[in-house]
């Protein structure tokens, strides 16, 4: 009896705030695992409503690959589309605008403004930047990305690296955890990656932030079994 009493007593001694804190942490961890679990499962989109889509353009070859993918998607399903590119990259949005203009020509709708928007974002890491200084620039990029994501709140995110997409994907994942917005995150690893995932690809894979990760070479899929091999995009 005595033993039981003292045990009860010691639980009572723990301050309430700590209990609450632990409970919140447990709830958050459970919620994160739930989100990761749900993310790996296909959606049941019974209404077949179009989905608002965020398209993150990398640069150069990355943009070319992404635009190839967009050409293959049904535009009436993936609408409205918001294109985001790094502020240091002035070619990518131009190329996306050309593509969107051709969509308007095809459908004769004449309303690019409603179907597609174009935005710029600070980049977390330039090609060749050291990983150390990347920490600071990533923080700035995160704040800007948060601002953009609150504005856009996409249902679908399409990205293919490099660094530009990572902060946006992290925020999208947080939105899922917090219940702000459920989005499906698709990452397509660049065709240039044959043997190893890129840094962004690896982070999204290991942290299980992306719903699906596509790779363009079979040997890469064998190395990272949770990826999907889809053949070459170029």
């Amino acid at each position: 009896m005595e033993k039981g009493n003292s045990c009860c007593f010691s639980i009572m001694m723990v301050p309430n705030s700590i209990v609450v804190l632990i409970a919140i942490n447990i709830i958050i961890v459970i919620r994160i695992f739930y989100v990761i679990h749900q993310s790996s499962k296909p959606l049941r989109n019974l209404s077949l409503e179009p989905v608002s889509t965020l398209i993150i353009l990398g640069s150069g070859g990355h943009t070319a690959e992404m635009l190839n993918l967009i050409r293959g998607l049904q535009k009436n399903r993936f609408t409205p589309r918001v294109y985001v590119a790094a502020s240091t990259d002035n070619m990518s949005l131009q190329k996306a605008q050309v593509l969107e203009a051709s969509v308007v020509d095809q459908t004769g709708a004449g309303k690019v403004k409603e179907a597609a928007q174009f935005m710029q974002i600070y980049r977390s890491r330039e090609v060749g930047q050291s990983y150390l200084t990347s920490v600071g620039t990533t923080l700035i990029a995160l704040v800007h990305a948060l601002f953009l994501m609150i504005k856009i709140r996409p249902q679908v995110i399409l990205c293919n690296g490099p660094g530009t997409c990572f902060p946006l994907c992290v925020i999208a994942f947080l939105f899922k955890v917090l219940g702000v917005r459920w989005s499906s995150i698709f990452y397509v690893e660049s065709i240039a990656r044959v043997r190893r995932l890129s840094l962004s690809g690896l982070l999204l894979y290991k942290l299980r932030i992306a719903d699906l990760i596509f790779v363009q070479w079979p040997q890469l899929q064998r190395k990272y079994p949770r990826t999907n091999y889809v053949g070459c995009l170029m």
């Binding site: 959606l43 989109n45 993918l69 699906l212 889809v230 053949g231």
Partner: peptide
């Protein structure tokens, strides 16, 4: 032989529940 975006598009469509 140039690549093809259709396989990725197909997987994405299926995942989102589009027929």
């Amino acid at each position: 032989v140039p690549g093809d975006a259709r396989p990725v598009a197909k997987v994405i469509n299926r995942f989102l529940g589009f027929p």
